[in-house]
């Protein structure tokens, strides 16, 4: 079932839950903070796990590295990407 809530707050909860970041409060993630090389220290497995999660939970496929980098740059860019790409959008 694809999720409908693509607000920054929902996406932060999605990231924390999907990656089991049990020391991170979703609210502490800034909308524009870089996901890679930023406060979350995501590694390559985290990024893959987010890509898998986006497909399963939001019904959006990322099949291009550049597109993936742009989408996963920050919570803000992820929200914009999903708004444009979700089924029915």
């Amino acid at each position: 079932m694809a999720s409908n809530d693509i607000s920054p707050a929902a996406l932060k909860r999605f990231i924390v839950r999907r990656l089991r970041l049990d020391q991170v409060e979703p609210e502490s993630i800034a909308d524009e903070a870089p996901l890679v090389g930023g406060g979350l220290n995501l590694d390559s497995i985290d990024l893959l796990e987010l890509v898998v999660g986006l497909e399963k939970e939001y019904g959006v496929k990322i099949a291009d590295v550049t597109e993936g980098r742009t989408a996963l740059a920050s919570v803000q860019s992820l929200a914009e990407f999903l708004a444009a790409r979700r089924p029915g959008a």
């Binding site: 970041l21 049990d22 020391q23 890679v36 090389g37 406060g39 220290n41 995501l42 590694d43 390559s44």
Partner: peptide, 22 residues
């Protein structure tokens, strides 16, 4: 703070070496 520790790690370590739990 956790953030201060992580900041030093980010500047010096590849992501997979950075403590996921502090």
């Amino acid at each position: 703070t956790r953030e201060a520790v992580l900041e030093t790690c980010r500047a010096n370590l590849a992501p997979y070496k950075i403590p996921r739990r502090i």
